[in-house]
């Protein structure tokens, strides 16, 4: 099918197999390798992207399902070379270790902030409950989001 959608603010049209996973479409056809694959069943959250303002695991969405919809990946988060406040907060707060879960983690948090600009600590935890991380114990990730919310970012 001819897929037409918006990826990171850019309208695209591409001939695709509708049964292809959104994850593969983004990584292989669009070269957006910031989207990571960790479990292939929607449990680890490494492949999280934002689809029409909602965080989704792109391994459980088919490319055929994103017709005329808007997708945001980690690559689309910075604007004119300026990092998103969440990216800065993750960097400054030690929220990134091996970094493999980071793109999905940041996007889950970004989707939360789109819906709720002032989330509580519990809401932050809920927003990333589907994003697994073995390195950090989540604490510095939560703190990073809290800092971003409060604007305590350099």
């Amino acid at each position: 099918m001819l897929l037409s959608c918006t990826v990171n603010g850019e309208k695209i049209e591409k001939e695709i197999d509708p049964a292809k996973r959104l994850l593969d479409f983004l990584r292989d056809d669009m070269g957006l390798t910031g989207v990571k694959e960790g479990c292939s069943e929607g449990e680890c959250g490494a492949c999280t992207v934002i689809l029409d303002n909602q965080a989704v695991t792109s391994c459980t969405v088919y490319a055929g399902q994103v017709m005329d919809r808007e997708i945001l990946t980690i690559e689309g988060l910075e604007k004119n070379g300026e990092l998103d406040i969440l990216q800065k907060a993750f960097i400054e707060n030690g929220a990134i270790q091996c970094g493999f879960c980071t793109p999905g983690m940041i996007l889950s948090c970004r989707a939360l902030l789109m819906e709720k600009p002032n989330p509580t600590r519990e809401e932050i935890k809920r927003a990333i409950e589907g994003n697994l991380c073995r390195c950090t114990g989540y604490e510095k990730i939560i703190k990073a989001v809290e800092c971003a919310v409060k604007g305590e970012v350099q």
Partner: peptide, 19 residues
Amino acid sequence: RLIREDVYDKARGKTQYTC
């Protein structure tokens, strides 16, 4: 508490892992 240099690319999804 110095900031690691590799995290800038990791935060932007630019780091190339083997995959």
